[in-house]
């Protein structure tokens, strides 16, 4: 993030250019099913175009999830290792309400919103009292508690214990298998709307205070801001978004399994954020796409050993590309357009 004070005309022009480029990307993604159909000669809702849409749908879901994580890590500067808790809660709430209560989608949407909101407030009040790595460990422990409970045999009737819930009855009109094209636009629209909302929020006065907290919490506090409240807002907002991503994830995969609550799910958010570039909104979304693609390519090339390659790639990225794709790109551009070093945050 460029500090507000250093924004100048050139930066505004750059923003406008970004908007234009963003619009083109969205347009491309919106036309993608038909472009794919043109290229392959297959209909847009069958064969390879359908398969590719599937990859992209999952990427959109993770994009929202990663974006929600970056609001915490990149914007507020707090490292949570329990983000899977929100995502998993969204998944399980959706799956259980569909399977056991047969609620409608609108009701479920509201329910997920409410549940993750309450969850965010509760756990935020507790864990935000500690800072730094303590916060990371506390959130990790809370998420792990949820993971353990999701596997507990005591609740098999509702959660399916270690097997999870399968074949959840998604309404026919957005069934991801039969209505792939419709689902594709649903997921794309979902990602787009969340992005726009998030952009609105981070550019609002509240968002600026949150960034100020990241830069220097003591200073923000001495300026009279209740930093705890702002951090809580960021925590809850990020949690609710992750929960919504979880909801769409459940609709898309038609199941819920304990894996969505495991540490690996949190690590995924971290990876996407780091790869794409923390502290930007586009970065994590791009990271989600890259991760999805990388996972697909690596698993085809290296077979079952691909996570190993992946781990090594991750270590290399942390060592040599710490600002992620978007961050490195921004730095490079800033560097080539100005002589002196700009004050880019390193978080």
């Amino acid at each position: 993030m460029v500090e507000p004070g250093t924004l100048d005309v050139r930066a505004k022009q750059a923003t406008r250019r970004w908007n234009l480029q963003g619009l083109m990307v969205v347009l491309f993604l919106a036309l993608f099913p038909f472009l794919a159909s043109l290229v392959t000669g297959e209909p847009p809702d069958a064969g390879r175009p359908k398969f590719w849409q599937g990859l992209l749908i999952q990427a959109y879901i993770f994009a929202v999830y990663a974006l929600s994580y970056d609001i915490l890590m990149g914007y507020t500067g707090i490292l949570s290792f329990g983000h899977a808790m929100f995502f998993g809660t969204g998944v399980y709430a959706t799956a259980m309400l569909l399977k056991h209560a047969e609620w409608g989608l609108g009701q479920i949407f509201l329910a997920v919103l409410l549940i993750t909101f309450v969850q965010g407030v509760l756990f935020g009040l507790v864990s935000l009292r500690v800072k730094g790595v303590y916060f990371a460990m506390v959130t990790l422990a809370f998420a792990e508690a949820f993971y353990i409970l999701s596997e507990a045999t005591d609740f098999r009737r509702w959660t399916g214990a270690e097997d999870g819930l399968h074949g959840i009855p998604v309404p026919d009109f957005i069934n991801p298998t039969d209505q792939r094209l419709r689902f594709y636009y649903l997921a794309l629209g979902f990602a787009l709307i969340v992005y726009l909302i998030a952009r609105r929020v981070v550019n609002s006065p509240t968002g600026r205070v949150i960034v100020a907290i990241r830069e220097n919490e003591t200073r923000a506090a001495t300026l009279g801001y209740n930093t705890f409240a702002y951090k809580l807002i960021a925590f809850v907002f990020s949690g609710v978004l992750a929960g919504l991503a979880g909801m769409v994830h459940a609709l898309w995969n038609l199941n819920a399994s304990p894996a969505v609550l495991s540490v690996n799910t949190t690590i995924n958010a971290l990876l996407m954020t780091i790869i794409g570039g923390a502290g930007t909104l586009v970065g994590p979304m791009l990271g989600a796409g890259v991760l999805q693609l990388l996972g697909y390519v690596l698993s085809r090339t290296f077979g079952p050993r691909w996570p190993l390659v992946f781990g090594v790639v991750f270590i290399l990225i942390v060592l040599f590309l710490p600002y992620g794709i978007v961050g490195t790109w921004n730095r490079w551009r800033a560097h080539s357009s100005t002589k002196d070093k700009p004050s880019l945050s390193s978080k």
């Binding site: 790595v133 971290l270 780091i274 190993l308 090594v312 991750f314 270590i315 942390v318 060592l319």
Partner: peptide, 27 residues
């Protein structure tokens, strides 16, 4: 070899050890 270069960047240090967990389990 891995942690020493990152003492100036604590968050990345944590991330790196996380990467080691990932790779270590796979190994």
């Amino acid at each position: 070899s891995l942690i020493r270069p990152l003492y100036e960047r604590p968050i990345y240090q944590v991330l790196l050890t996380l990467g080691i967990v990932f790779a270590g389990n796979e190994v």
